[in-house]
Design a protein around this nucleic acid. Structure first.
Lengths: 230, 230
DNA sequence: TCGGGGTTCGAACGATCGTCCGCTCGACGA
DNA sequence: TCGTCGAGCGGACGATCGTTCGAACCCCGA
């Protein structure tokens, strides 16, 4: 609970730096820009990190770390694959809406790191990606085979890779177009995306199960706004 | 048909430059790198364009111009919205697979242009986006209201915007992960993405109509490989 | 009051950047 | 043979980059 002055200052630097880098891009954002944005002198910045590249790394690691922690905390208490996926999407989009600059830097400056820094961030992304990938596998093997056989005998996951990244593409592309004042708020958008991914663009089907209205544990939000598009 | 030596040389410069910029990013790719890649001296490059930014613009405009031309040529002879969408996806993914460096530069360096250059490219993107958006509108108003009423009285297109960009996200994110040696070839991947977008991740439904097997004009490719994932 | 460590600064360093100037070379028509 | 012009080059320019160094500052325990 105790946060030292150092930690607070560093967090603020990361926040302000993210904003600059999100606007101008990592390479175009000069240390002098960051100095101006944070109010700390050019040389003073180097007390908190030892290179510009490390600054980028700290931003990405900090942002991704929170994302991963929060994900595992959320998924810990949920076992239903469908709900797990919805939580995943909610969290991911929620993070974008909450801290757009950081997420833009995370998404857009993936290749700007090298060496050890790049390796560490790649490792985090791998874990995150596999989390989603396994959710999709569970979701598929649950609905695909009502009997209970082995998931897929032919192709273990060649297309699964594409599907996983298709969903990531939907989500990560947000930083390109999402404007909080024009577009739906995060929870609404997340549900729309979940619907789109699960049931497709066609299908005017109702939000949850298209058949067999079994008593599901649906306590979550049920469309405060009228469904407009689906 | 007659291509001057100048045009050939410029095209080659654009091609080689795209490769360099795709690998290192626009700002990190120095004119000296491009000089080395093309074999043209540093100052000699400026005979073909008057600034580095114009080089980036030429790359983007050239690539996008071809994409737009080919799109309108393809869609000219197709009226069925479903087929139009499939053609759109096929073309877009085909372009990625065919010329990855250019498409990466186009997708990733959107903000690297400014002023007039940026304006011109943005205009092209707007046209391209509206093409897709209108296809989606047609597709929806066709299947949504079998009677034939006005598409959507409540919300004119607030969510349509999100859906359009969701599809673009799926497609444009390709440059991040697609590897021709690991992943399915373009046509296969395009069909998989079309299926995913139209019918969703769930639904082990057959490729085309889930009901009413009317005699459609389906002459196109019908899954040479066994359907693995859906 | 003193001193020392955590914190911040001004000023400069060498490196690299995009761009430009003046020149050369070869092809070609008069 | 000469003059013109497209095509390309070597070398340098000023600007800006990330980074460093040594000195100062501030705060608190002794």
């Amino acid at each position: 609970m105790e946060t030292s002055r150092y930690d607070d200052r560093l967090s603020e630097i990361l926040r302000k730096s993210s904003a600059v880098m999100a606007e101008k891009g990592y390479h175009r954002a000069s240390m002098r820009d960051i100095s101006a944005a944070t109010g700390i002198s050019l040389s003073g910045l180097y007390y908190y990190f030892k290179s510009k590249e490390e600054l980028l790394f700290l931003i990405q690691e900090h942002c991704f770390g929170m994302l991963l922690d929060q994900l595992q905390a959320e998924l810990k208490e949920v076992s239903d694959p469908r709900t797990r996926l919805e939580r995943f999407i909610q969290l991911h989009i929620g993070f974008f809406a909450q801290s757009m600059p950081e997420m833009k830097v995370l998404s857009h400056e993936a290749d700007s790191l090298s060496g050890e820094y790049r390796h560490r961030v790649t490792e985090l992304k791998r874990a995150y990606t596999e989390e989603l990938s396994s959710i999709l596998d569970d979701l598929l093997s649950e609905t695909d085979t009502p009997g209970g056989s082995v998931p897929a005998p032919g192709d273990p996951g060649a297309s699964s890779r594409a599907t996983t990244f298709a969903l990531f593409g939907m989500l990560n592309w947000l930083y390109t177009w999402y404007r909080p004042d024009r577009d739906p708020p995060a929870p609404e958008l997340a549900e729309q995306f979940a619907q789109l991914f699960l049931h497709g663009f066609l299908s005017g089907a109702p939000p949850h199960p298209p058949e067999e209205p079994t008593g599901q544990l649906s306590t979550s939000s049920q469309a405060a706004q009228p469904r407009t598009f689906f």
